[in-house]
Simulated scan of single mutants.
Amino acid sequence: MDVFHREALAADLANKVLFVAPTSASGSGLFLAAPRRTGKSTFLREDLRPQLEKQGALVVYVDLWEDRRADPGDVIVHAVRAELSRHDGVVKRLARSAGMEKVTVGGVAFSLDRVGLGEGVSLSAALAALSDETNQVIVLIVDEAQHAITSERGNDALFALKAARDELNSSRHRGLRVVATGSNRDKLAMLRNSRDQAFYGAPLVNFPPLGPDYVAWFCERVGLAAPLDPMVVQELFTHAAFRPELLGAAADALRFEFGLAPQDVPGRFAAAVQEQIDASNDELLRVVHSLTPLQAAVLKVLARRGADYAPFEGATLQAYQAVLQAANPAGEARADVPAVQQALLALQEKALVWRAARGVYAIEEAVLAELMEQRGLLADVP
């Protein structure tokens, strides 16, 4: 498949990740925030990883969003085990460290199941053995990293990686860099904002969206019956919140409009992009409109309060009740703590709300709060 590459950005970012100045906090990890579906994961796999490998790093890539049913801590451990399994020398090192001098690789005496959280071989020891055996800096890329703090094992995995980072970045080893990405800046910040977090103080930066070079590449390859003006498409792309899939879907719609005259292509493409935006927004709001009155009230108050949301405080309970009353003055729904807990659980199951293991809640898709505000759905929140 033809993929748009951002080689200059990848090279610049790889340099910053691998070559950390003594006074820099980048050794604590690097956190990149970008909205979902804006090309971040494609960049990580197609550009950053190859560039890091070109510069001599060993890259381990973990996507915590790939299987949302799996515990994020287990996903991280399994990714490390998978990389270890590719290096026979590392397995022998770990076997010897476990007191098995005569182990044969592939035998039953030593299993990589011993590597992990609370197991016989820590992640720190395993990654140190991997770095020493390969004589390479290890870069662990964790995509959708905010998902790690939704479980206790995920939290444990982050602290295990911190211990590994501290050990591997000492003078005895080649080094470990952790690059964490996320689709919500506020949620990603929870991994590095407070002193009780594993990556406290690590840089958090906004990942740059695709720009005019991508739009020019798209216009060259779109293959419609008439060319598209990159300047016009750039405006449409900005309006589409820099989501490439919306441009692609609009182009696909035109390809199947048989009999479309070439002179009508530019105007029809602009209309098709708007249709894709509207369809995406309507799909989000369709789920919102299917909620029970209390679920809708809880979601609205969370969307309005944002980072200041305290789900069970008295003032928040009063806000839920006010929204319920505004929607149905004669209604009997009551916003007590048990009912709110059930509403929050239902919102999580509908993938509208995200919860950290320590009880902090946030809107799953930041764009949903903006859309609810635009449509006037938050007007009744005090």
Rank of each mutant, 00 (worst) to 15 (best):
F31G: 04
L204S: 04
T181Y: 05
D229W: 06
I363N: 02
A335I: 11
F19P: 00
L168S: 09
V90A: 14
P266D: 10
L317P: 05
L30A: 02
L378S: 09
Q136E: 11
R195A: 09
E101A: 15
E133G: 01
V90L: 03
A250G: 08
S183L: 04
P266Y: 09
L345Q: 14
L161Y: 12
A330C: 00
S97Q: 15
I363P: 02
F218C: 04
E220G: 04
Q318M: 12
R37C: 02
T292A: 13
H78Y: 04
A79I: 05
V3D: 01
V340N: 09
S41D: 05
D132S: 14
L18F: 06
I141Q: 10
G259C: 11
A128T: 12
T238Q: 12
A335M: 10
P72M: 07
R69M: 08
A366M: 02
R45N: 03
L347V: 06
L112E: 03
V288M: 03
R177P: 06
A330S: 13
M190S: 03
L117Q: 08
Y200I: 00
A25N: 14
D166P: 09
P311H: 09
I363C: 04
S171W: 04
Q321P: 01
R305E: 14
D308T: 11
E370L: 13
E167F: 00
L48Q: 05
P382Q: 10
L254M: 05
D213Q: 13
G223V: 02
A303K: 04
S170N: 13
S194I: 00
P203F: 07
L94H: 09
S194C: 00
N169W: 07
V17D: 03
N135K: 15
Q295P: 01
D229A: 08
A198P: 07
A319Q: 14
S124E: 15
L246K: 06
A362V: 00
A160H: 06
L176V: 10
G331E: 10
R172E: 14
A322Y: 06
A240Y: 04
G99I: 10
D264V: 02
A307W: 00
D2I: 03
L44I: 07
R81P: 01
V60W: 07
A109N: 10
L176C: 08
A198D: 07
Y309L: 13
A351F: 12
R375E: 15
A34Q: 09
L371G: 09
G118E: 12
Q234L: 12
R172L: 13
S122T: 15
S97I: 03
A253V: 05
Y200A: 05
A129S: 15
R49P: 01
V222Y: 04
V323F: 08
Q55R: 15
L94P: 06
Y320N: 08
F159N: 08
A98W: 02
A98C: 14
A198S: 11
Q234M: 14
C219L: 08
L352F: 06
A297V: 03
A14Q: 04
L228A: 07
H173K: 05
S151M: 06
F256Q: 13
W354Y: 15
T238R: 13
G29R: 09
L48N: 08
G223T: 04
D71K: 05
R37V: 01
F159K: 10
V105L: 09
R221Q: 11
R221A: 10
L94D: 09
P50D: 12
V17T: 14
T38C: 15
K102W: 11
L247W: 01
G267D: 15
P262T: 11
A126C: 06
C219Y: 08
G201Q: 10
A57H: 05
V139I: 10
A128F: 01
